[in-house]
Simulated scan of single mutants.
Amino acid sequence: MVKHGRNKKRRAGRIGRTKLKNKHSFRRWDPKPQIADAVVRQHWDPSKSPSVNLANLGLVARPNDDAKNIAPSQRIQPATNVNVVELFDIPDSDELREQKRQRRCPLKEEDQKYIVKCLAKYGDDYGKAFRDTKINYMQHTENQLRKMGARFLLLNKEQRVVDVPEKVKALVKTVEQ
């Protein structure tokens, strides 16, 4: 049977158009901003541009713009009657919670075991370790192995989980000194 140019029509977009199935959940963009903070809502004027509104709040719309290139007539003077404490809820007390900082190890335990096998067999010759698919089963590139090896050699005794191979112990001693 003849298709009467069906492929042309399909490529042109006349056939197979998709329509919105659920019209109730589709919302158009509302140009009026929905502001949750009462103080900001009070000072915000939707008829003015966002940069003017931010200037009225005492903020700068584009802080990285070079102020020298802006003409003096176009410069927006920040409002002086707005109190910053009104804009943001600042807690009464100055007590800050101490966050527990975990020691971040630059090399995971699995990666340490992986690079130790490479270093034990080939030392610091990462080209040979790269070509050995039995040791380098993750198929890291030569540069990736070099970075992992350098990170392993720079680890402290507390951070190191695996013993240093004999072939690279001299490198670890020179790094520690």
Rank of each mutant, 00 (worst) to 15 (best):
N81P: 01
L87K: 02
P50D: 07
P91W: 06
N69P: 00
L107F: 08
L96T: 13
V85F: 15
C118Q: 05
I35T: 05
S73L: 04
A12G: 08
R14I: 13
K19G: 03
E86F: 02
K8L: 13
Y114F: 10
N69R: 14
P106D: 01
R14L: 14
K21Y: 06
Q77A: 15
I90M: 03
V52R: 09
C105W: 02
G16T: 02
R62Q: 13
D111E: 12
V60D: 05
K113P: 02
A12R: 15
Q102Y: 00
A38C: 03
P78D: 00
V52A: 09
S47R: 15
H43T: 01
Q102N: 01
R103P: 07
A12M: 09
L87R: 04
P72A: 10
N53M: 04
I70D: 00
A61K: 13
A38P: 15
E98C: 12
L107E: 00
P50T: 03
A38E: 10
E95T: 14
K113E: 11
A38D: 11
E95L: 14
K117R: 15
N64V: 07
Q74R: 15
N56H: 12
A71E: 11
V39W: 03
V60T: 14
Q102I: 06
D37I: 05
A67P: 14
V84F: 06
E86V: 02
D94I: 09
N83T: 13
V39Q: 04
D45G: 01
N64T: 11
R75L: 08
T18W: 11
K32H: 06
D65A: 12
K48I: 12
Q112E: 04
D92A: 14
P91D: 02
R11N: 10
E98D: 06
N64S: 08
R17T: 05
R28S: 11
D37S: 12
Q77N: 11
R41T: 03
I35S: 04
D111L: 07
V52T: 04
K108I: 10
A36L: 08
V52Q: 13
T80Q: 04
L54I: 05
R17I: 07
D30R: 15
Q42P: 02
C118N: 01
G58A: 03
Q99C: 12
R10N: 07
S25C: 10
R28H: 07
C118Y: 01
E109V: 13
A79I: 04
D92Y: 13
L54G: 03
Q77R: 15
L107K: 07
I35E: 06
I90D: 01
